[in-house]
Amino acid sequence: MSREQLERLRLDRARFLYEVYDSSTIRLPDGREVPRLPSHDFWIGDGEFCGRIGFRFQPGTEALPPTCPGHVGYAVVPWKRRRGYATQALRLILPVARAEGFARVMITCDESNEASRKVILANGGVFDGAFAHPGPGGRTKLRFWVPTA
Rank of each mutant, 00 (worst) to 15 (best):
R3C: 05
L6T: 15
R8T: 07
R8A: 04
D12K: 03
A14K: 14
R15I: 01
F16R: 03
V20M: 15
R27A: 13
R27D: 12
L28T: 15
P29N: 08
E33V: 01
E33H: 10
V34H: 15
V34G: 15
P35L: 07
P35V: 03
P35R: 03
P35T: 05
R36Y: 01
L37W: 04
H40W: 02
F42D: 05
W43K: 14
D46M: 08
G47D: 13
G51I: 08
G51D: 10
R52M: 14
I53K: 02
G54F: 05
R56E: 13
R56S: 12
Q58Y: 00
P66S: 15
T67V: 10
G70F: 11
G73R: 02
V77T: 15
W79P: 03
K80R: 10
G84Q: 14
G84E: 09
G84F: 11
A86W: 00
T87D: 06
A89I: 15
R91M: 08
L92D: 10
I93K: 06
I93F: 06
L94Q: 04
P95L: 04
V96E: 09
A97C: 13
A97N: 12
R98E: 14
R98L: 07
A99N: 15
F102M: 04
V105S: 00
V105K: 00
I107S: 02
N113W: 00
N113Y: 00
A115H: 12
A115Q: 14
S116Q: 13
R117V: 09
K118F: 03
K118N: 07
L121C: 14
A122Q: 01
G124M: 06
F127S: 13
F127M: 11
D128S: 09
G129W: 12
A130E: 14
F131H: 02
G135I: 01
P136R: 07
G137H: 11
G138A: 02
F144I: 08
V146M: 05
V146W: 01
P147F: 10
T148V: 09
A149N: 15
A149I: 14
